[in-house]
């Protein structure tokens, strides 16, 4: 496949559903071919404050497939506020399994502020066979200074899990007055990452609080990647790819809370070389989870 064919296939898959912008309708995407697209930032379940289009698993999966997504790393909105994390994680795993095509990979959550949280960790790994975790320190009430955070990351690294660290879930300025959750402070992160060999970390919804020099420092501290769900600047993906080491920028839509088209159009807005586009779309995610490429 030459460059022209690759770009045509990948842009078409990205923009399927982004109608009206002069881009051809997507051909069916293969999982590892140029049309592959791994979305590392989707959530199942209901957002606590609003009903969303696609907040049913079947609907979300159908939408993702229609957009050319071949694999989606799925967390659960339930894991933000539910104290029965085991039940939330079990539902997440069952929903992903029930979807049936392998599109959805469950990323359960562990709240290390809960008693005997290690059992939730064990079930995620051993019972649900989850390939990764998604952590929400600001919703669960701990900071990245907390030794339990380092311990949890260490446990995940030993099991070969990818850890997704969500720094925020919504704009702090427009939160419900009774549910104000400050962003997680990423300042300690580079130091923590350096202490955990083998850690594979993806920062989710992080590009509003972590930028420029601080971002570069965290990413260079270990195997740390970022996804583009909350990246919002003209030529944002182009600038980010240029600023970070190769293979550290992942495609994330933050669907269904965000319109999926936001992330898809970012790839169109930024003029990326075909190798860069391939890396963002699937190769960098594939490197992190080769068994689920």
């Amino acid at each position: 496949m030459d460059r022209r064919e690759f770009l045509k296939a990948s842009l078409a898959a990205t923009a399927a559903g982004v109608a009206g912008l002069g881009i051809p309708v997507a051909a069916p995407a293969s999982e590892t071919g140029p049309g592959a697209l791994v979305d590392v930032n989707v959530n199942l379940g209901r957002w606590p404050l609003r009903r969303l289009r696609f907040d049913d698993t079947a609907g979300l999966a159908a939408m993702l497939r229609s957009q050319g997504v071949t694999r989606a790393w799925a967390g659960s909105f339930e894991c933000l506020l539910h104290k029965d994390m085991a039940a939330a994680n079990a539902r997440l795993a069952a929903d992903c399994r029930r979807e049936g095509t392998g599109l959805l990979l469950p990323f359960g959550s562990v709240n290390p502020m809960l008693p005997e949280w290690e059992e939730d960790f064990r079930r995620c790994v051993e019972e649900h066979r989850m390939p990764g975790l998604r952590l929400h320190p600001n919703y669960h009430g701990y900071t990245l200074h907390d030794p339990v955070f380092t311990r949890l990351l260490g446990m995940a690294a030993k099991k070969g899990l990818v850890v997704e660290l969500a720094l925020i879930m919504e704009d702090e300025r427009m939160m419900h007055p009774l549910l104000r959750v400050p962003p997680t402070d990423p300042a300690p992160l580079a130091g923590v990452v350096k202490r955990i060999p083998g850690l594979k970390l993806v920062i989710v919804n992080g590009l509003r609080t972590l930028r420029d020099k601080a971002l570069a420092e965290v990413v260079s501290a270990g195997d740390v990647s970022v996804e583009i769900g909350m990246l919002d600047a003209l030529n944002g993906v182009g600038d980010l790819v240029a600023a970070l080491p190769e293979g550290r920028v992942l495609f994330g839509s933050y669907a269904p809370l965000f319109y999926f088209e936001s992330a898809a159009l970012k790839l169109q807005e930024s003029p990326l070389a075909d190798a860069q586009l391939r890396a963002v779309r699937y190769e960098s995610a594939k490197r992190l989870l080769p068994a689920f490429a």
């Binding site: 559903g17 982004v18 109608a19 009206g20 912008l21 919002d232 600047a233 003209l234 030529n235 944002g236 965000f258 319109y259 999926f260 088209e261 936001s262 898809a264 159009l265 970012k266 169109q268 807005e269």
Partner: peptide
């Protein structure tokens, strides 16, 4: 402050 793409998605999506 923002991007064309994120804001276009509000309508296209």
């Amino acid at each position: 402050a923002r991007s064309f793409s994120s804001q276009l998605s509000k309508v296209l999506g």
